[in-house]
Amino acid sequence: MADEDELIPFDLMKKKKKKKKTGFDLDAALNEDGAADGSPSQATENKAEETPASADLEDLSLDMDFGGLKKKKKKKKAFDMEEVGDALPQEDGSNQTAGEGGDFGMDDEFSLDLGKKKKKKKSRNTEDFDEEIDRDEEDTGADQPDGSNNKAWSSSDRDYTYDELLLRVFDIMREKNPEMIAGDKKRFVMRPPQVLRVGTRKTSFANFADICRLLHRQPKHVLAFLLAELGTSGSVDGNNQLLIRGKYTQKQIENVLRRYIKEYVTCHTCRSRDTILQKDTRLFFLQCETCGSRCSVASIKTGFQAVTGKRAAIRAKTA
C-alpha cells in the first residue's frame, strides 16, 4: 500500500493529484480504522477504493471491469455487516484528520469525496447510475437470502433458489480465500512514461528502465515491442533511457505501453498483473502467479517496413 502511494496512475497529469489524494486518505483512514476494529476497516476500504474507480470511469480497460467485479463482491460483504453504521462516525472523523494532515489545497475535492462516502453509506444514491444498478441488484440478492434465508433452506425441505445458491458459493469463496478479495481490488497504477524530445528527430523515454522494472519485464522485450509497434529504430543509452527515432508524445508512448501491458503483463485469464514471462522452446509463455494459468503470447514481429529513408543511401550500403 505504501508503495502504491508513490505510484501515479497511468493517466494524464491532471488526474494524478486527485488519485494520489484519494489514495492518501484511504491509507490514513485504514490505519486508524484498522486499529479500532477489524471488520469496519474492510468496509471503509471498500468504499474508499470505489471512489477512485468511479472517478475515472473513462479510464480504460486494464482495471475497469476488474473494478466492477470487485465492487460487487465488496458490496455484498459490506452489507452483511451491521457494524457499518457504528463505524461511520468514527471513520468520518479519521478521514477529516487525514485530509487536514495531508494537504490543504484540496479541500473542495476532499469534501466531495467525503460526501460520496456518506451518501453511499446512508442513502446509497450516487450519481453513478450503473453503479447504482449494480448495487441494487446486490441489494435484492444479498439482503433477503442473508441471515434469514441462508439457514431457512437448510432446515426446510424446499428447493434452493438460484440466488441462494449463488450467495452460498460466493460466501464460501470469500471464506476460503480472504486474500483473494483483499488483493484483488488493487488498482493497477503506473508511473507515466517520461517522454522528452531530443533534438528534432529523436525522442527520449527517460524512465524506461524504471517502467520495465515495475512491469517485471526484460527491457529487451519491452524495447522490441515498442520499436516494432512504432515501426522505428532505437536503443537504450548509457543512463538507461531509451532513444527512439521519430517524434512521439507521451500520450502515444502511453498507448503503446498500455497495449504491451494488456498483451504481455496482465494475465489473460484473471487479469492479475502478477505474472512471469518465460521463454519455452521458442515461444513466450505468460505464467500467472495468482491463478496459476499459463498461456502463450504472440511473439513480437516487426512485419513489413516500408522504405522511408533515402533509397540511394540504402542502395549504396547494400551494393
Partner: peptide, 24 residues
C-alpha cells in the same frame, strides 16, 4: 499474412509530420 490471416495496419513516421500507412 503470417499468422491466421491477420491483417496488420501499421504506421511509419517519415520526415517532418508526414506518415505512411502500410496494410499487410
Amino acid at each position: 499474412g503470417i499468422q491466421g490471416g491477420l491483417i496488420h495496419i501499421r504506421i511509419q513516421q517519415r520526415n517532418g509530420r508526414k506518415t505512411l500507412t502500410t496494410v499487410q
